[in-house]
Design a protein around this nucleic acid. Structure first.
Length: 199
DNA sequence: TTCCAGGCAATAC
DNA sequence: GTATTGCATGGA
């Protein structure tokens, strides 16, 4: 069952290294040492929340607004005027819900200090589901947690590697069982899947 | 104009 | 327990 490995090779050959997660609007193919600072880690986390069911260009606009208003910081998000925060993230859609999610996550982020969160801790937060939790762990904390999204399911379905009613955790485990447990590989693979999905 | 994008929680059945 | 619905913007 190394069709998973072959899928990775195929996509990598087709698209090359993707360099996810973008930090300050920049991708960093072949440099897996991100995030380099706590601020960058926080940026990845809020990007993961903002991108829920939304395309990335809309999220980038929101991130730029947050940056301009000096809100790239958990404490500042908590202290920020609610309307200003909502105005900043408006382009990412669902701004009422997402403003609340950013607040809840910011509180958690501060309480965690530098500790790597457990997956269950993230899932217990309002507004963090499995994909966002795994994205945060994989890209912000460099933990080998495979991220499954709508594209992943679609692509595996088309290749008949899963059936229609496969759950999030089943798909996640399919990847994790068939790949070396390396965060760099997981990061690239998920990014390649999204790239393929967009085509 | 309609459709959908790197989901999630609340509600309905 | 599974299925459906609300949340919202911007670009194709």
């Amino acid at each position: 069952m190394d069709r998973i490995r072959r899928l990775y090779d195929e996509l990598y050959t087709k698209y090359g290294p993707q360099g996810w997660w973008p930090v300050s609007g920049r991708y960093h193919p072949d440099d897996y040492s991100y995030p380099k600072t706590k601020k960058q880690r926080f940026e990845i986390c809020i990007g993961a929340i903002l991108t829920q069911n939304t395309n990335w260009p809309n999220v980038e606009k929101a991130l730029i607004n947050l940056q301009k208003n000096k809100l790239f910081d958990a404490k500042k998000i908590l202290d920020a005027d609610e309307d200003l925060l909502k105005a900043c993230i408006r382009s990412a859609g669902y701004y009422n819900q997402k403003a609340k999610k950013l607040g809840i996550f910011s509180q958690f982020f501060i309480a965690q200090n530098k500790k790597i969160p457990l997956r269950d801790q993230l899932l217990a937060l309002w507004g963090i589901g499995p994909e966002t939790a795994d994205s945060i762990l994989l890209y912000a904390y460099m933990q080998p947690e495979f991220v499954v999204d709508a594209y992943t399911k679609r692509i595996l379905l088309k290749r008949k590697l899963i059936n229609e009613n496969a759950t999030y955790d089943e798909i996640k485990k399919l990847f994790e069982k068939n790949l070396p447990k390396k965060f760099e590989l997981y990061q690239e693979f998920h990014a390649l899947i999204v790239e393929e999905g967009k085509h």
